[in-house]
């Protein structure tokens, strides 16, 4: 499979404003796409603690807080702020021709 084949269309660039997020189901993966300061980020939409949907949490700059038990993650690297060994899976994103694409990693994280 060629490298570019791994990029999957997620949403149109203008669907999200800064500070907004949108949950998507991409090839069976629950993904949360976020836009912060003009950049797009994609993380698994399932909190690694008890699988609550992070899409229902609150976003402050780069930190998303899970709605269930307030676990906080940095969306850039997926680190859990209180113990960085725990991470929410993240996905690469890129913008191409007004579309936001994400690359599902080999680990199949977030399934």
């Amino acid at each position: 499979m060629k490298q570019e084949d791994n990029w999957i269309f997620a949403l149109k660039e203008d669907e999200l404003s800064n500070g907004e997020k949108k949950p998507l189901l991409i090839e069976g993966n629950k993904v949360l796409v976020l836009k912060i300061d003009g950049d797009f980020f994609a993380i698994s939409n399932k909190c690694p603690h008890m699988e609550c949907p992070l899409s229902k949490g609150t976003l402050e700059q780069y930190v998303i807080k899970c709605p269930c038990h307030d676990w906080r993650f940095d969306v850039r690297e997926g680190k859990f702020l209180d113990a960085e060994e725990i991470r929410v899976p993240i996905y690469e994103t890129k913008v191409m021709e007004e579309g936001v694409f994400i690359k599902l990693s080999k680990e199949g994280a977030g399934k």
Partner: peptide, 11 residues
């Protein structure tokens, strides 16, 4: 099952 995944990376 859920919690064993959480505590494992913490040692």
């Amino acid at each position: 099952t859920m919690f064993s995944k959480v505590v494992d990376p913490l040692g």
